[in-house]
Amino acid sequence: MSGFDETLLGEADETVRVRFVVNGRKVACEVAPRETLVDCLREKLELTGTHAGCEMGACGACLIQLDGRAVHSCLIFAVQADGARIDTIEGLSESGVIADLQAEFHRRNALQCGFCTPGMLVNAEELLSLVAQPSREQIRDALSGNYCRCTGYEAIIDAIYAVAKARSGGVTT
């Protein structure tokens, strides 16, 4: 009835098998329980578009979609995500759902070194899925957990604002 097997306690270093649906494909891999999802994605699955920055949930570079919601992949162990649907920047790029955001970031130089960009895009996509036409203030607020050390944010906010307008059928400026 308990479901808990005490031998587990002696096996802290042993890997366990986890399964996800990553970017629409079923994958299985062996992970140690202490391995974070961002490390698993980057090292086991070689999806290096997700960036490991602060590794404590402050910088937002590691954002991915977990069951459709933006989360920090550094703040979840891979074992916790067993059975989940995961979409990374690679999947979002290939499917074309954020093509307009990417084009607008490019057009407005909303990146320089690009380290923060995957997280920015995941966050922007979630914002626009929840709020069709956010104000600049709302965009700024939504990005409060994403650090960019190059651009000063203005171009990023411009890009997201423009895409929101375009998606709502407005004219981009």
Partner: peptide, 18 residues
């Protein structure tokens, strides 16, 4: 993190027991 074991509980009783 330091190495640890991981257990996913399905019920409160399982969690408390573990």
């Amino acid at each position: 993190a330091r190495a640890f074991s991981y257990f996913r509980a399905a019920t409160i009783d399982q969690a408390l027991d573990a």
